[in-house]
Every structure is written in structure tokens, then in C-alpha cells.
């Protein structure tokens, strides 16, 4: 018998979070303030995402949690255990079987469907913060669609590095209205932000929730003569030979031998299983 309310949060708090989510869905890309609750884990461990997941979960859901694409990292394991314990929901590592996927730093390789919700853990929701420290001013800039500064940041990148060097948290324009941070996913994942799945973003410490509803237009910011380039490492996965997935560099022995493998562990494992099936 559990000592907790379903999914830890009390019903009133979940209703408050759901209202913020609904507002976020109604105004794609707009950061909705919400009263973030203390969670039994430190900030930086995805308390924003956990609260959004808690507000969305039903007993029938199947939950997947990934961190940098992997299901087996400490962060992913502890969040998954947290919901197993407090909500007693089914969990999975299979992207296609999950109804809710909580993620940090990646979008799964497998195309998501209308029956899925992707919940992002967001450390810094404000894409303008790097250039404008005042919260009052950034809110005004969003309200007035005063986004010249965003391109100043990209201009500075090109001036300094010869290209847009922003590789993570690459800013996007949502539905021609709000500039949004996609959380620190690699820019490789940006094209996947236009999705059939509902995407929800939760920032615990900053107390913001925002959303990209299914089939919303999401455009990565760029210049006409320096178009957005999702880029990827120029080699296939060393394990499954995928040429279209995002790769992590891993060191495989004490001699510092390196190889590039899919960061999405479920995607990679699936491909290898299929290849073994064919070989057999």
C-alpha cells in the first residue's frame, strides 16, 4: 500500500499544473508561470518535468524515462523508480510502447505518434536570458514579439566562429509567434519538434511550463545566407550502422579507444535485434 497520493502530488496541485499545461497548449511556445512544488529530489534532477509527468499520468499509462537518450542512467532510473513507486504505472524502455516519455536532452529517434506525450526537463526556459537578464524586459519582448536580440546572438556566433555555433538549446520560432528554447537537446533534434505527439516542457526552479501541441509549426532561427543546419557526426553508429541517428562518442577501454554509437539506446538495440533476426 502506497503512502502517497497517486503520482505523489495532491489532486489540487495536479489540477493547477494541468491548467498551466492547457494554457500552454492553447498558446504554443508561451511560457506559463506555475507554482512549482518541492519534489523529493534536487533541482536539476528534472523536478519541472516530474511535476508535468505527474499531472499527466493515469493508471493506464506506460512510462518511459530517458536521459541523454539512455534509459539506464542514474537520473532516468531514479525518476522511473519514483513513478513506479508513487503511481504504480507500467514502465518500458521501448519508445513505441510508451504513452508518456519524460526526457532530458534528447528526442527519441523513432517518430512519435498522436497517442504519445513527450515531457521535457528544462533547466532554463527563457531563450532570451543570455542576452537580457531582466525578467520584466524579456516578458515584454515576448509580448511585443520584439525578437531582434535573438538574431543578434546568432550574428555573434557567425562573427566569432564563422557559423552558427549554437549546438544545443537552439532557439526556435513556434507557430510564427513565440521564440522558444527547446531545452538543451542537440540541434540535430530540432526538426523532430514538428511532431504528431504532444510536447510539454517543465522548468521546476524557474517555475514555467510551455507546450508544443501536435503538428505545430516549429522553425529553427537562422539567416538567409546561413541557413539552419541540424548537422551530425560524419559516420554511422558503430553498433547498429544507423546513418541517420544522433551519436555519442564513447570511450571503450583504458587505452582511450573511441567509438560513436547511437545516443538513443532503445533505437540502437531495436536495430541490432532486427539485424540479428535477419541473420538467423
Amino acid at each position: 500500500m502506497s503512502d502517497y497520493n497517486f503520482a505523489y502530488l495532491d489532486e489540487q496541485t495536479k489540477r493547477m499544473i494541468r491548467r498551466a499545461i492547457l494554457k500552454g497548449v492553447a498558446v504554443p511556445g508561451y511560457q506559463v508561470p506555475f507554482a512549482s512544488r518541492e519534489m523529493p529530489m534536487p533541482y536539476g534532477w528534472g523536478t519541472g518535468g516530474v511535476q508535468v509527468t505527474a499531472a499527466c499520468l493515469t493508471p493506464e499509462d506506460t512510462l518511459k524515462v530517458i536521459d541523454q537518450g539512455a534509459d539506464d542512467t542514474t537520473n532516468a532510473v531514479s525518476i522511473r523508480k519514483f513513478f513506479e513507486k508513487t503511481a504504480d504505472v507500467a514502465v518500458t524502455e521501448k519508445t513505441a510502447e510508451a504513452t508518456i516519455i519524460q526526457t532530458r536532452h534528447r528526442i527519441p529517434e523513432v517518430t512519435l505518434t498522436e497517442d504519445q506525450i513527450l515531457v521535457y526537463q528544462v533547466p532554463m526556459p527563457e531563450p532570451l536570458r543570455f542576452l537580457e537578464p531582466s525578467e520584466v524586459e524579456t516578458r515584454k519582448m515576448h509580448a511585443l514579439q520584439d525578437y531582434g536580440l535573438m538574431h543578434v546572438k546568432l550574428y555573434e556566433d557567425i562573427a566569432r566562429h564563422g557559423e552558427i555555433a549554437t549546438a544545443y538549446s537552439y532557439p526556435v520560432m513556434v507557430e510564427d509567434r513565440y521564440v522558444m528554447s527547446p531545452s538543451p537537446i542537440p540541434k540535430f533534434d530540432n526538426p523532430k519538434l514538428e511532431s504528431a505527439a504532444l510536447q510539454l516542457f517543465g522548468a521546476g526552479r524557474e517555475q514555467r511550463i510551455y507546450a508544443v501541441p501536435p503538428f505545430t509549426k516549429v522553425v529553427s532561427l537562422d539567416f538567409d545566407d546561413y541557413p539552419f543546419d541540424p548537422s551530425k557526426a560524419p559516420h554511422p553508429c558503430a553498433l547498429c550502422a544507423a546513418e541517420d541517428s544522433y551519436l555519442d562518442e564513447v570511450i571503450t577501454d583504458d587505452q582511450g579507444t573511441r567509438m560513436f554509437v547511437c545516443s538513443d539506446t532503445d533505437f540502437c538495440a531495436d536495430r541490432r535485434a532486427a539485424q540479428e533476426g535477419e541473420a538467423a
Binding site: 520584439d146 525578437y147 531582434g148 536580440l149 538574431h151 543578434v152 550574428y155 555573434e156 557567425i158 562573427a159 566569432r160 539567416f223 538567409d224 545566407d225 546561413y226
Partner: peptide, 18 residues
């Protein structure tokens, strides 16, 4: 940068060619 400072107003009114 100086260039970014001068370019900001241009970008604010929609200039998109670096």
C-alpha cells in the same frame, strides 16, 4: 561586438541576411 551593436536595429526590423 561592435558589429552586433550596429546590426541590432536592422535585425529588430527583420533583416535576415548576415
Amino acid at each position: 561586438s561592435a558589429g552586433g551593436n550596429v546590426g541590432e536595429r536592422l535585425m529588430a526590423v527583420g533583416a535576415r541576411h548576415y
